[in-house]
Design a protein around this nucleic acid. Structure first.
Lengths: 144, 144
DNA sequence: AAAAATTAGTTGACATATTCAACTAATTTC
DNA sequence: GAAATTAGTTGAATATGTCAACTAATTTTT
């Protein structure tokens, strides 16, 4: 019943899109946007992270990434080092300040999520976790 | 272990945020944005839908909603009728054209999701569905 | 090995979207 | 009936995303 599956996935998309909006992890009071937070996280957790990798990974235009990186670079959160084996490429690094900001954003996000899951029971937590793993496992294959 | 739960939810948020980005249901070739699609859907499926309801529901600034509605209204997709019991309030309706556009956007979105779940097996589909239900059931309570 | 094509990244012009504060009009509270 | 609240609009400022053109480095083709 593929048609039903499609409608159900769309329903969940609507639900989770709104949930993410309500989570509002990187809110307007924060000096940094969600995109910037995502980029900082990805640079930290990806070996030899580059602008084109980020562009591909987030499916964002390379100009969008370039400009976001320029801003992060101007604010001394990110450094770029020309990759010697291919001088078109720049490897991205977080500065000390970039790490600090990332840690700060992560703890803010943890507080928000913490408030939301505060009233989740232990049994629910187990189910929730399992369900998230299932979705990630199944969809990840399809998204590659 | 609440701390672990928080980190796991954040992990899933990252995954699903990216998944939604890649789904790109209402893509740039479409004449209407994701926000507009969401608004049309919500007007269609909410009795006596109003701008403040949408603002609250999507946690978007009322000016953002107002402007989006102006555009939809100018494009003859949405009509506003003053609510007689409280003349500050306007009830929102889709026009025939609005319904058509919503249907069109829905079928586009179905195609995209269809492509993604194309290779999901029947067994996986059952698991996926169940997992989505679990997440929605548990998180919905917390988001209210 | 030179020409042509591709790739990484930047830039500028433009269009869109979002935010904030100020505002009007209708309604409620006191 | 005055003061406060609520629904919705507007304008100015800012942020964001998109597109095409561009440079420089590298790879492919012949």
């Amino acid at each position: 019943m593929k048609i039903q599956l499609i409608e159900d996935v769309k329903h969940f998309n609507r639900f989770y899109t709104r949930a993410i909006g309500i989570f509002n992890l990187y809110n307007s009071s924060s000096k940094y946007s969600a995109t910037e937070a995502m980029i900082l996280y990805e640079i930290k957790n990806t070996e030899d992270c580059t602008a084109s990798y980020l562009s591909e990974y987030f499916q964002l235009d390379k100009s969008t990434i370039s400009k976001a990186l320029s801003k992060l670079s101007k604010n001394s959160l990110v450094n770029k080092k020309v990759y010697e084996q291919d001088k078109r490429v720049q490897i991205l690094f977080l500065t000390k300040e970039g790490e600090d900001v990332l840690n700060y954003l992560a703890s803010e996000a943890s507080n928000v999520v913490g408030n939301i899951v505060e009233n989740v029971t232990d049994a629910e937590a187990i189910d929730l976790l399992e369900a998230m793993k299932v979705i990630e496992r199944i969809l990840k294959k399809q998204l590659e």
